[in-house]
């Protein structure tokens, strides 16, 4: 019996429990690829896309694992299926949409080791979402990741134009900005 509606699942994963700013998933790309607005938004799109695909795969794998009663294979299967899915998606895009491949291409292999993707697969299983709920959750989480990384990139582009003291440059200031963003996002709690 789920009391969550699709809308509240979406809002939850997009804003209230934002993957980056509240659940701390996908911090590496958030710190690493957020210095340019353009790359950040493409990274966000790539992550959303991969999340959508691996959410579907993870749902299927979980059904299979429950059927053969092998819950201990969950983690291994998820990580293998995500890595394979990323490879297939990459080959597929390369063949059918070179333009999209040029936009997302170099990010795809990086995403395999992004903990947001594995986290999504694990959370949707832990929360017991059905197929449609899982997909909505994946889209919300992807959009939430994109939102966070684009916001951060916007701030960092502005930061380029100001004089920042030497000792706080680099990761330190990004983390402190992320803290402020995270506090801002707390204001969304209670929305769903």
């Amino acid at each position: 019996m789920h009391t969550e509606t699709l809308g509240s699942i979406f809002l939850n994963s997009l804003l209230i429990n934002n993957f980056v700013l509240s659940a701390f998933l996908g911090i590496c790309p958030f710190l690493g690829v957020s210095n340019k607005l353009d790359t950040a938004s493409r990274m966000g799109m790539a992550v959303t896309f991969v999340m959508f695909v691996s959410s579907m795969c993870a749902y299927g794998v979980n059904v299979l694992l429950l059927w053969i009663e092998a819950p201990y294979l969950q983690l291994i299967s998820y990580i293998v299926i995500i890595a394979s899915a990323v490879q297939l998606v990459e080959m597929f895009i390369k063949k059918f949409s070179p333009a999209l491949f040029r936009a997302l291409g170099i990010f795809l292999p990086l995403i395999t080791t992004n903990c947001a993707i594995l986290g999504l697969a694990l959370f949707q299983t832990a929360k017991g979402y059905n197929f449609v709920e899982s997909l909505v959750y994946a889209i919300g989480a992807g959009a939430g990741f994109t939102l966070a990384i684009v916001l951060m990139a916007g701030i960092r582009e502005e930061l380029e134009l100001t004089s920042v003291p030497g000792i706080i440059k680099g990761t330190a200031i990004v983390l402190i900005i992320a803290g402020i963003l995270s506090m801002t996002f707390m204001g969304f709690a209670g929305l769903a």
């Binding site: 700013l21 509240s22 659940a23 701390f24 030497g166 000792i167 706080i168 440059k169 680099g170 990761t171 330190a172 200031i173 990004v174 983390l175 402190i176 992320a178 803290g179 402020i180 995270s182 506090m183 707390m186």
Partner: peptide
């Protein structure tokens, strides 16, 4: 309370890195 909330995690790590930077400098 902020310290145990997500925001606090970013702040504490940010300031720790800042301190280490300052020390190294």
């Amino acid at each position: 309370v902020i310290m145990v909330l997500p925001g606090g995690a970013f702040f504490v790590l940010g300031f720790l890195l800042l301190g280490i930077n300052a020390m190294n400098t």
